[in-house]
């Protein structure tokens, strides 16, 4: 497969994952802050910005922030910017993806471009809901229609590497602001926050199936980081990333595992044998940062191994 094509598939997938995440986060946040007082609202928006690793724009209220995170094209991580970037990448390789994938991505793009902050602010769910659905539809089509060859594995890599980054940032932001209070009362502010965290990772229901509705931060951390079955967990992502890299290596008949594969193997092992109490006892912030660093290494190694390798080294082989 051409490196350029692999790169476009990878980024299409990452941008789509990021857009879906932002849509979910904004949908929940706008819903949560409906009936809350101003100070809580400010705190909550700060956490959203932290989790997206964005600096706080000046004098921003909920309306302006929603505009900034949804429509502002100067913000490269805004929802519309992400969907545009996903579409642009897909457009470069239209012949490589199924026409259904392209059509739905194009429809999603047209839908998000048609709206503006005035038309959506009073009924944000009517806007963000279909975006989430559109993204799920595209992912479903990708998995069920596209052949699971090399291209599909680059899509998998993009999706799961992005997901790890988003989930860990979100966890980090929550632990930073919530750790102060250790008691959770059902219906209290913090309780609502932790539930929102699970919901923004579409994991509330599966969490309840595992742990009942008893909400505890360390259990949330355990679920989102170490659960073996949930496709939203970091451990699951690590497994998927490793599998895809092994397949890619086999397809391209690499005899020795490359750097990306070695990093992915190590990454998976650290998650397979981790214990949540150790993580909590130690320092969860450091732990999350370490995960992100490992994921960053995998990203760079994939890029160097398959996409932007130096011509000089390739010629030497």
């Amino acid at each position: 497969m051409l490196s350029r094509v692999a790169d476009s598939l990878y980024w299409m997938s990452r941008y789509l994952e990021r857009a879906e995440h932002t849509a979910r986060l904004l949908d929940l946040t706008l819903n949560l802050t409906l009936d809350q007082d101003a100070s809580v609202e400010v705190e909550r928006w700060q956490m959203v910005l932290d989790s997206l690793r964005l600096p706080k724009p000046e004098a921003a209220d909920a309306y302006q922030l929603t505009q900034y995170l949804t429509f502002d094209l100067r913000n490269k991580d805004s929802l519309v910017a992400c969907i545009s970037a996903a579409r642009e990448n897909a457009g470069q390789i239209r012949e490589q993806i199924s026409s259904e994938m392209w059509e739905h991505l194009n429809q999603l793009y047209l839908m998000v471009r048609r709206a503006n902050i005035e038309t959506i602010y009073n009924q944000p769910h009517g806007y963000f809901g279909p975006i989430k659905e559109g993204s799920h539809l595209i992912q479903g089509i990708t998995d069920s229609i596209m052949s699971h060859g090399e291209g599909w594995h680059f899509i998998q890599l993009g999706r799961y590497i992005e997901r790890v980054g988003l989930t860990t940032s979100l966890l980090d932001a929550h632990f930073k602001s919530m750790l102060k209070s250790d008691k959770l009362t059902a219906g209290g502010q913090d309780y609502i926050s932790w539930v929102a965290l699970l919901k923004s990772c579409t994991s509330f229901e599966s969490y309840c199936q595992t742990y009942t509705a008893d909400i505890r931060p360390e259990r949330i951390a355990e679920f989102l980081l170490l659960n073996a079955e949930s496709p939203r967990s970091v451990r699951f992502a690590a497994k998927t990333i490793q599998t895809s890299l092994e397949t890619l290596s086999r397809i391209n008949s690499k005899l020795k595992p490359g750097r990306a594969q070695r990093y992915a193997g190590r990454f998976r092992a650290t998650l397979d044998y981790a214990q949540v109490d150790e993580i909590m006892a130690d320092n969860i912030h450091n732990y999350l940062e370490n995960i992100q660093r490992q994921c960053g290494q995998i990203h760079t190694a994939v890029h160097q191994q398959y996409i932007a390798y130096s011509v000089e080294s390739a010629l030497a082989h």
């Binding site: 497969m1 051409l2 490196s3 350029r4 692999a6 090399e150 890619l248 397809i251 391209n252 008949s253 398959y306 996409i307 390798y309 011509v311 390739a314 010629l315 082989h317």
Partner: peptide
């Protein structure tokens, strides 16, 4: 596309995930 091609010592290559 042109950006997929590399010429070295009078040989043309394309950049693929499996190497040049």
């Amino acid at each position: 596309e042109g950006r997929d091609l590399i010429v070295h010592d009078n040989i043309v290559y394309m950049r693929t995930t499996g190497g040049l």
